[in-house]
Amino acid sequence: MGYSFGRDDVVFLGSAAGVAALAEVDRLELTPATHLHDLERVRREFGARSGALVETVRLRRRAAAKLVDPGWWLFTDDALQQATPTLVARHRADRLSGRTVHDVTCSIGAELIELARVCPSVLGSDLDDVRLSMAAHNLAESRNVLLAKADALVPCSTGTVVIADPARRADGRRTHDPAKLQPPLPDLLAAYPGRDLAVKCAPGLDFDRLDWSGEIEIVSLDGAVREACLWSAGLSEPGVTRRATVLTSRGGSVAYTDADPDEIPDQPPGEWLIDPDGAIVRAGLVRHYAAKHGLWQLDPNIAYLTGNSVPDGVRGFRIVDRLELREKTLRRELARRDCGSLEILIRGLDIDPDTLRKRLKLRGTNPYTLVLTRISRTAAAFLCTT
């Protein structure tokens, strides 16, 4: 658990004295090796404010990997964990550009600051006084944002697009049950009937438990699946119920939907294997992605794709050989090829890659990738280079 901030902490941290104190603390390493010495120094100089100062500096350093320019922001540990990465929030804001938007679970304002750049008027509300105070600090330069204390389940705006980000933990543990989110997702949806609604969710949420007629978008950033977002029908393209959006920190964005063609050939493996981005897999759009890039599946129930070329910007694995999936065979072939490092990718088989790698007793110098999967009911092993 992190430091428990109070509103008086927020007032101090936002004052001239607080800003100067944070700058002083930020000069310290605050690493495990220097922890005791640094903490003693901060306590000696700032007394009762030391906890808030040290925690804020630590959180800002962590936030730099997630948020763009968080240098003056205030956070709680939980709020930072749940905050939407800037590039993901920016993508959602772009879809809502020009609309008036109400974020009913605004927390410390990670969504609001992106909405404020493209929307004429933005309302943020939350029940947590400390987070609202932090949001006011974080958005001090955004003149088109209004903040209010309000329950997300009690509508307090009209004519706005409503966005929400229910907390994903129940009883201290992450949950995939929509009814155990805070606020519960079914209650949240019921509170805004007929409204344009966007709800951020965990990508692993069990969407089969929801009666959702709009779009479910899965978003990845730099290859890591970040979130799902439920878009009501009024915010979706006609005919689209599933979308995968692939973002990169370089500013790239590619989307695939279930309205795209999904006809692909049934052919033997080509020259390359491709492991699609996780957003594409979780959105159930592997065939649509394959059709767009001239690829096909090794097996209709497995996400690995194959083809004779690799889509731009995607990592591919050139097939060197197809081997029998037996340890003795693999060990012999890898030794013959002087394999010293081996990346092992697995789909559709219950094999632990680390255990297998140790049993293969690699002693060479050449790097390879081993792709283990099944085709129909038969296990298959593909030795590849990248």
Rank of each mutant, 00 (worst) to 15 (best):
E40Q: 09
A21K: 07
P353V: 13
A21Q: 09
T248I: 01
R250L: 11
V310S: 13
V371L: 15
G348D: 06
F12V: 08
L59W: 03
V145R: 03
F207V: 15
H37K: 08
C384W: 05
D211R: 15
R99P: 05
V320W: 08
L210A: 09
L342F: 09
E111N: 09
V68T: 10
A380S: 12
L28A: 06
V54G: 06
Y3T: 03
C384I: 12
T158K: 07
D9P: 02
P186N: 03
V281F: 06
R131N: 06
S341Y: 01
L383N: 13
A190H: 07
D206N: 15
G2T: 12
G294R: 02
K200H: 07
W296Y: 11
V118L: 10
T329M: 10
A228M: 05
S213N: 10
V246I: 14
L383K: 05
Y304T: 04
A190R: 14
K149G: 11
E215P: 06
P268M: 01
L181P: 02
G194Y: 07
Q182E: 14
L146P: 00
P120F: 00
E141M: 10
G194N: 00
T245R: 03
C106L: 12
V320Q: 14
G294P: 00
P203S: 12
D69Q: 09
Q182Y: 10
V199S: 02
R60L: 03
D277S: 06
L273T: 05
A20M: 11
A140H: 13
L189Q: 13
S125G: 06
R357G: 03
L123C: 08
D260Q: 09
A233D: 13
A303T: 04
L372R: 06
H176Y: 12
T329R: 14
V130Q: 13
G340Q: 09
I108Y: 02
A93Y: 10
I218T: 14
A64N: 02
P32Q: 14
K361E: 13
W272N: 08
C229M: 13
R174N: 08
R174Q: 12
T160W: 00
V225D: 01
L28M: 13
S133R: 05
A228T: 00
V54W: 03
E29D: 14
S133I: 03
D321W: 01
R169A: 09
E45V: 14
E263V: 12
Q297D: 00
L28C: 12
E263C: 08
G252M: 06
E327T: 04
E45H: 11
A93H: 11
G47M: 05
I218L: 12
R61Q: 13
R322M: 10
R173I: 06
H176N: 15
S376I: 04
A335R: 07
D258G: 12
G234E: 11
G204C: 05
S133Q: 14
Y289C: 09
R336I: 06
I274C: 08
S142P: 00
V19R: 15
R95F: 03
E111W: 04
P184F: 05
T257D: 09
Y304K: 02
R318I: 03
S97Y: 00
C201W: 03
R49T: 04
V254K: 05
E55V: 01
R209S: 09
L342N: 14
C339R: 02
A79G: 15
P238C: 02
G239P: 03
G6T: 15
G364M: 05
S97A: 15
H91M: 12
R209H: 11
T241G: 05
A198I: 05
K180D: 12
R357K: 06
D354Q: 12
D128N: 15
